[in-house]
Design a protein around this nucleic acid. Structure first.
Length: 581
DNA sequence: TTAGGGTTAG
């Protein structure tokens, strides 16, 4: 039996960076850096400890790095969060033409393009992969599916997947996550079913996480519970799946289940904590969010920038303005997290809600950001300005959004509504003309809810497509009556009336009703990219937690989904488990 | 004989 060289054995058994650091000069002195196998092990040992500079030093010290050395270093740069450097290194490798990239190199490079969402480079590399015939490699195919998905080109991702000669559970997970991440949860769920029916492999944690996330975005509680059952039966219990479940139950209105799932995690890491912080915040339980945040800090779990978004979001949605400002101002000193545009957007939103529109505006003006962040921030400020009748700031926010060329139809509608509430009809008509000239049409707001495997869809301003209209209307009347009893009159409807510029004469309040209804059933659908509208109108009218309490008094218990039969799909009819908990 | 693909929270 051939044993690996002695240094390699030692490197393989190094569990601490110090032992690698100690071996390095010995390897150098003994001349073993010219042995590619040993040098590559040294390089890789540094990468295991995320020491990219040390790894690069080894690479430079090697007299003749081979394809493994180049590929390891490229992958190392991607791993440590510098994919652009990985890509640059690949270009150098090709330019020098001494070492030829292989399939391992190409999979790493495609991965770099995924992280950068750089579809231009990705497509060029894809073309080279095809020329070289590497496209039939399952790892490269899967990496390409992921790359197109991360660049939001779902069609191309699917085309690659469909032409793969061999696919495994990783390839299926990848294509399912592409749909889940691109607001096409129904397709993701359909593909999951196809995988279960046609592939003999079992789904794994990656696949389950994506599918649970798809259920969350669609508000598909029934499917989500069935998937949860499968997760339990297959014994999967990692933080990522648990975090996805916490999020799914919260988005489906079941914060109690979120809490149960969360509390069953032995040692939750930062992600489930963040899920639970956000979940509580969305249900109006800001104080619980802050308690959870304190708890995780006490356990020594370090928050990241998303956790801080959750904390600020919690303050914002529970009116804890001063606490929110304190967290913003201390997050860098206390947790080493520099506030970014998303954090400032939470704060602008928080100030805007309580009517501190000038402060919100000053903050918005002075925050540097990219187009996506700017769109969220100015849209939030526009909405707050409308609610608080600040025509001056609404005009500026609207202009900024028009300059950004984002959400134009929404901007025109909100601006028009703001002018309408101020009685400035000339401007309202001007905006309507402008919309017509540009051919802008606002897509109607849409909410949906899944009850016993059936989806009920509600369009703003249009009840004709809504099933069970009379039941819906009677529930709404009762809900509104109770809201009024509890003081949720919401400023003589000023902030609540939803006027569609194209349909101004219709009964405008209907649009709002349909959205309230989705909440009434305890289910808020939040597909990526579509969310905000639904939430925005809701949040202006009442506190979600309060609503859930009221709804549980009104809604028939029959609406709770208890059917777990679809377990059978996963276990050939041998399921006997009737209780999730 | 070292190196490669898929997940969650905003």
């Amino acid at each position: 039996m051939n044993l690996p060289p002695i240094f390699v054995q030692k490197l393989q058994h190094s569990n601490h960076l110090n032992s690698v650091l100690a071996l390095h000069p010995n390897i150098l002195k003994s001349g073993y850096l010219s042995d590619q196998f040993t040098a590559n092990h040294l390089l890789f040992s540094y990468l295991k400890f995320h020491k990219i500079k040390h790894a690069h030093q080894v690479f430079k010290e090697m007299p003749s790095p081979n394809v493994v050395s180049w590929t390891s270093l490229i992958a190392g740069y991607i791993e440590c969060g510098a994919p652009e450097k990985g890509l640059h290194l690949f270009e150098t490798m090709c330019r020098r033409s001494i070492v030829v990239p292989n399939s391992f190199t190409y999979s790493a490079v495609v991965n770099a393009c995924s992280f950068l969402a750089d579809i231009q480079s990705g497509e060029k590399i894809h073309a080279r992969i095809e020329r070289l015939g590497y496209q039939s490699c399952v790892v490269i195919g899967t990496a390409l599916v992921n790359m197109y998905g991360k660049s939001n080109d779902v069609a191309k991702a699917r085309r690659v997947f469909d032409t793969m000669p061999y696919r495994n559970v990783v390839s299926w997970s990848s294509v399912i996550s592409v749909y889940a991440q691109n607001a096409l949860g129904n397709v993701a769920i359909g593909l999951f079913g196809e995988f279960i029916r046609t592939v003999s492999e079992l789904p794994n944690e990656f696949m389950f996480s994506s599918i649970i996330s798809a259920c969350a975005s669609l508000g598909r509680l029934g499917t989500g519970r069935v998937v949860h059952g499968a997760v339990i039966r297959l014994g999967y219990a990692n933080d990522v799946v648990a975090g996805a479940l916490v999020d799914m139950y919260a988005k489906c209105g079941c914060i109690g289940y979120s809490d149960k799932v969360f509390r069953r995690i032995g040692k939750p890491c930062v992600i489930p904590y963040t899920s639970m912080i956000v979940a509580s915040a969305k249900h109006g339980l800001g104080k619980l969010s802050l308690e959870l945040f304190k708890e995780m800090l006490e356990k020594g779990i370090r928050p990241n920038n998303v956790t801080m978004i959750g904390v600020l979001y919690a303050c914002s949605h529970s009116g804890l303005v001063d606490t929110g400002l304190d967290h913003l101002n201390s997050m860098e000193a206390k947790h080493g997290i520099e506030p970014n545009a998303k954090h400032y957007t939470c704060i602008v939103d928080m100030l805007g809600r309580v009517g501190r529109v000038d402060e919100a505006y000053n903050l918005a003006k002075n925050t540097p950001m990219d187009t996506n962040d700017a769109t969220l921030l100015w849209a939030s400020l526009l909405s707050a300005s409308r609610i608080h009748s600040r025509l001056d700031i609404a005009i500026e926010a609207g202009q900024r959004l028009i300059e950004l060329n984002q959400q134009l139809a929404s901007v025109y509608v909100t601006m028009s509504n703001t002018f309408a509430s101020a009685g400035e009809w000339e401007s309202v008509h001007g905006l309507r003309r402008s919309m017509k000239q540009q051919g802008l049409q606002k897509e109607p707001g849409c909410s949906w809810v899944e009850i016993k495997d059936r989806s009920y869809v509600f369009y703003a301003g249009d009840l004709s497509r809504c099933e069970r209209v009379s039941e819906v209307m009677s529930l709404l009347r009762e809900l509104e009556m109770r809201m009024k009893e509890r003081g949720h009159v919401s400023g003589s409807n000023k902030g609540l009336v939803f006027v569609d510029v194209e349909e101004e004469d219709k009964e405008a309040i209907v649009g709002l009703h349909s959205e309230k209804l989705a909440l009434a059933f305890g289910l808020i659908s939040i597909p990526k990219g579509m969310t905000i509208r639904v939430m925005k109108n809701l949040r202006m009218c009442f506190n979600c937690h309060e609503a859930f309490k009221m709804i549980s008094e009104i809604v028939d218990r029959d609406f709770v989904v208890r059917d777990l039969n679809r377990f059978h799909h996963f276990k050939n009819g041998s399921c006997t488990c009737g209780d999730f908990w």
